[in-house]
Amino acid sequence: MTPLAPVSRAARLLLGIGFFVVFVAAWAAITYGGMVPPLFLASPGATLVAGWSLFTEFNFIGDIAITVFRVVCGFLIAAAIAVPVGLAMGAFKSVEAFLEPFVSFARYLPASAFIPLLILWAGVDEAQKLAVIFIGSVFQIIIMVAVIAAATRRDLVEAASTLGARSWGVVFRVIIPSAAPQVAETLRLVLGWAWTYVIVAELIGAQSGIGHMIMDSQRLLDTGQMIFGIVMIGLIGLVTDVLVKALNRRLFPWAVI
């Protein structure tokens, strides 16, 4: 193995799948081998059976749909506010001076710590779930977008101004397009985090969703269902990630060639 030497596409795919195989094999070995009791860890087969019954008997599709809806809505609201604010902070030092200290403070507030307060304010309906995701995402996006925008190449800004661009021309036709691919990458990253917030929100005071299903299964001591729920979250995350990556490559061909 040569350091930093690239590997072929096929080898990459094979190695990637390889680890899943190793992982499942180890899981099968310790469960079928009787090293852990089924009550604590269901075997791969039992997990699949539990998953089947989740879909056929417990309307798991409905849970998935509501969870996806919460993540996407909460995340989109956060992004719609955070991206413009972050760009403004990155582009204008006075806005940065005004907001940066507060945002830096706020982004260390754990979203899950707000759940009791949010239940008090918004009850246990959708608004509370969206609020958890919103709080968890908005400050992270603001800070990261601000850093990206502030790092716009100075020589490009200078070139634009010698070509006649004024302040708004520089913001809209240099800072924003130059930041766009990295902002898209940031959104992809934070969307992943939003998934963890929604599950936490659903573990407490929810009547639906993947998190709620996992809580219910715990009450019934059904580790198969619990594990299936967790695996499902991972799969949805992986698929979204791949789709968003592909979308970014299409949107910003100039950044990847």
């Binding site: 490009l156 010698t162 130059s178």
Partner: peptide, 19 residues
């Protein structure tokens, strides 16, 4: 300040990569 009547070419490559 800078203005379009004084065009400039820099030593570093300053084409806008997204255009």
């Amino acid at each position: 300040g800078p203005g379009p009547e004084r065009g400039m070419v820099f030593q570093s490559y300053t084409l806008f990569p997204w255009l």
